Computed example of a mutant assay.
Amino acid sequence: MLIGYMRPYDGDQDCHIQLENLTKSNCDKIIKEEHSSAKKRTQLKNIVDHVQPGDKMIVHKLFALADSTRHLVELLEILETKGAYFQSLREGIDTSNKKGYPFNDIVKHLVEFQSDVISERTKKGLNKAKQKGVPTGRPRKPDENVKRAIHMYQSKKYSLTEIKKETGISKSTLYRYLES
């Protein structure tokens, strides 16, 4: 049996891209997780618990299946133990292909996968912060402190340690403002 699995993520919240690709792969069954959270992936657990020897689990891309490299490895080991296979369409991985999959490609895809995981988590965090009205990025130092630090530095009466203690402006920040 070909079992398609999909879950929402930032690039495909409604799962349309995944559904289109899984449908083209002639899946016998397509199962959708209702949320993108790493926790309580009930549909994934159900598939893994009930997969039969010879079944193949298909995803659009690795990120849809696992939340970390370790999680991916664990899932692949479980499927292998049960005699089932795995296929990721975007990466071109198919464990049922007995000719094997070149190690270089596996490493390359694992690096891309880890990058996708980090990127998705970052995007999710930034979106949540924006929705709450929280400014993103490194906070700027108050202008009064910068001016005071420059004045203290130019007076040559204070050490850099004293300036930092008094104003909270680090040596590198002070020098950056002095250069501009």
Rank of each mutant, 00 (worst) to 15 (best):
D49H: 09
T122P: 01
Q43Y: 14
Q18G: 07
L62N: 04
K99G: 15
I47W: 12
F113N: 11
E166D: 09
I150Q: 01
Y175S: 06
K82H: 09
K171V: 08
S180M: 05
Q131F: 10
F63A: 11
T95G: 11
E162D: 08
Q131N: 14
T42H: 13
E112D: 14
Y175H: 08
Y175G: 02
L2P: 00
Q154R: 05
H50A: 00
F63V: 12
S155E: 10
E33W: 03
Y177G: 03
P8H: 03
K130T: 06
P139F: 07
L62Q: 02
M57E: 03
Y101L: 12
Y153Q: 04
K108W: 12
H71L: 04
T136A: 11
S36I: 13
K98A: 04
T95K: 03
T161Q: 15
R148V: 02
R70M: 06
N26F: 09
D28N: 12
N127S: 10
A64D: 15
E120F: 00
V146I: 14
N97K: 08
H109Q: 10
S25Y: 01
A149H: 00
T173F: 01
H71Q: 10
K147S: 14
V146P: 04
T95P: 08
K171A: 06
K32S: 00
S159K: 10
S180Q: 15
E162M: 08
N104Q: 08
V134L: 02
D55S: 15
T42L: 14
N26V: 05
L22D: 05
K141R: 12
K39F: 06
Y158H: 14
N26Y: 03
G4E: 01
K56C: 09
S37D: 15
P142M: 11
A38P: 13
I30C: 06
L72I: 04
L2G: 00
R90C: 02
I150G: 04
K29I: 08
G133N: 02
R7K: 07
R140V: 04
F113G: 11
T23Y: 08
F103A: 15
V107F: 14
K108I: 13
R70Q: 09
T173P: 11
L65Q: 13
R140K: 11
L76I: 00
M1Q: 08
L75K: 12
K128I: 11
L76H: 03
T173E: 13
I150M: 03
T95A: 06
I118H: 13
R90P: 00
L76M: 07
S172L: 08
L126Y: 14
P102T: 04
E20Q: 00
G4F: 03
D105F: 15
Y85E: 12
V111W: 04
L79V: 02
I30E: 05
Y175T: 00
I47Y: 13
Q154F: 00
S88H: 06
G83A: 08
E33N: 06
N26I: 06
E77M: 07
T23K: 06
K128M: 11
L72T: 09
A84L: 11
